[in-house]
């Protein structure tokens, strides 16, 4: 008996509604974030990740209220990401009831933010989100870069090197999303995720591409992830979190039932 692998449903929230699109376009409405989070909690989710994808920062206030509402009803860890740019944003979200914040683009522009935040609030609440896309050509060894703007802008930063650097800077956990796989329902990007889990000694959450329960199990068994994140398979009731856990347990993975 030991530490369980975690299943983390992800809420992508736009203007106060849960949405999920294929590669961030074709957005489908999946409900009220507070209700959806409460349902996942009842189904036995190990954590909830809330990603604010609202384009305009005017609506940040909505997000804060939503985080407060979720934190008053759902007593499992809550990670909030999207629009976290400075230390004050982190404080706002932690005060609203988030347990961790996910820093993405801001870490690329200002890696010191991660160091500063980890020193001040502790590594346990600092998640660095890495959106990576394959840049190596056919026949070359695999190589992935960090992309921003929903996968449109190549930063030229190597994803595995970046992961190591962020761990050094004090990130407590890495959320690794494959931009090639996200929304495709064809499974996690195993080589990318494994390259990162092999390179760092902090927990890694695999994200992007889950279409069935075997994909979740593969994230742990083949890529060595400590947690697996999925959105649409849970939102549209294709599977419950409980079914996912039962399946993973059958595959010999330790889960919290």
């Amino acid at each position: 008996m030991s530490l369980a692998k975690r299943i983390i449903p992800c809420l992508d929230v736009d203007n106060g509604r849960v949405v999920k699109g294929v590669n961030f376009v074709d957005i489908r409405d999946a409900g009220d974030p507070v209700e959806v989070a409460a349902r996942y909690n009842r189904e036995g989710a190990d954590e909830i990740t809330f990603l604010d994808i609202t384009a305009s920062s005017d609506d940040r206030e909505t997000t804060v209220h939503m985080v407060e509402a979720i934190a008053s009803e759902v007593f499992i860890p809550l990670t909030v990401g999207g629009g976290i740019r400075k230390v004050e944003d982190i404080r706002t979200m932690l005060n609203a009831g988030a347990d961790k914040v996910a820093i993405n683009t801001a870490a690329i522009h200002n890696p010191e933010l991660v160091r500063e935040a980890a020193e001040y609030y502790g590594s346990q609440c600092i998640v660095v989100a890495i959106d990576a896309k394959k840049v190596s050509k056919e026949g070359e060894p695999d190589r992935w870069d960090i992309f921003t703007h929903g996968g449109r802008n190549d930063t030229g930063i190597d994803a595995v090197e970046w992961a190591k650097k962020m761990a050094e800077y004090g990130a407590g956990e890495l959320l690794v999303t494959s931009m090639d796989k996200d929304g495709t329902k064809s499974g996690f990007n195993i080589p990318l995720t494994k390259a990162i889990t092999d390179a760092v000694n902090i927990p890694v959450i695999a994200s992007g591409g889950v279409g069935n329960l075997q994909h979740l199990a593969d994230g742990v068994l083949k890529a060595g992830a400590d947690a697996v994140l999925a959105a649409s398979i849970f939102h549209f009731n294709e599977y419950t979190v409980g079914e996912a856990k039962a399946y993973m347990q059958e595959q010999g993975i330790e889960v919290r039932i």
């Binding site: 030991s2 530490l3 692998k5 902090i202 927990p203 400590d226």
Partner: peptide, 17 residues
Amino acid sequence: TDAAGSRLKIPQMGWNQ
């Protein structure tokens, strides 16, 4: 790693018994 070969990452983060 633990006796079963699972990696032990620090901090311990997650659900344990």
